[in-house]
């Protein structure tokens, strides 16, 4: 993935800040990656290389960690992140159907981000709210008893919010800025 202008500087500054605030040891590697991802939303290659340099571990080992743990992502997340719980209790009452409903509505598959970067969809193992199954986490807010109809409601609310945000932004933006996705 190529970086857009200014992004590179932002990544470098962020990694520098995190490395400056923490002890640079292998033991601290996962917390470092967590902090960088928390700031950037994902782990760009450049950040992984810089962390490897700072902590003095092979880059391939950082890549190994980033691809091993569920939490780390190597692509930017969507503006709205939806996580569908597929723990036992949720699965038994149709968590998979809920996930499919989101996939249909967002027109992406689980693990993907929509081309306009508005939505990303993930499955999670269990958020521990089993009594409210099926559960969905929408931008860190837990929603219980999410039926396919409720999925429509959630999407409606998110789209409305996006619409509002877009409407507020529009006056400042030139037409060419529109990311250009079909």
């Amino acid at each position: 993935m190529s970086l857009i202008e200014g992004e590179k500087e932002h990544i470098l500054a962020c990694v520098k800040e995190v490395l400056g605030e923490n002890t640079k040891t292998r033991e601290n590697l996962i917390p470092l990656l967590q902090q960088v991802q928390h700031k950037l939303g994902y782990l760009p290659s450049l950040a992984m290389e810089k962390i490897a340099e700072g902590v003095n571990v092979p880059t391939v080992d950082i890549y190994g960690l980033a691809t091993f743990y569920n939490q780390f992502r190597m692509n930017p997340p969507g503006k709205h992140q939806v996580k569908v719980c597929l723990g036992t209790a949720c699965y038994m009452v149709g968590g998979d159907i809920t996930l499919e409903s989101f996939e249909r509505r967002m027109e992406i598959k689980e693990g993907e981000t929509s081309p306009d970067r508005l939505f990303s969809l993930e499955r999670v193992a269990c958020v521990g709210c089993c009594t409210l199954a099926p559960v969905v986490v929408v931008d860190d807010k837990v929603e219980g008893k999410v039926t396919p109809t409720r999925v429509d409601g959630i999407m409606l609310a998110l789209n409305e919010e996006n619409g509002k945000a877009a409407a507020e932004q529009k006056p400042d933006q030139s037409e060419g800025d529109d990311n250009g996705h079909s």
Binding site: G87, T88, A125, C126
Partner: peptide, 11 residues
């Protein structure tokens, strides 16, 4: 690291 889906006692 309570990971079992369907368990939330530790949490």
């Amino acid at each position: 690291d309570e990971g079992d889906p369907g368990a939330f006692m530790d949490r």
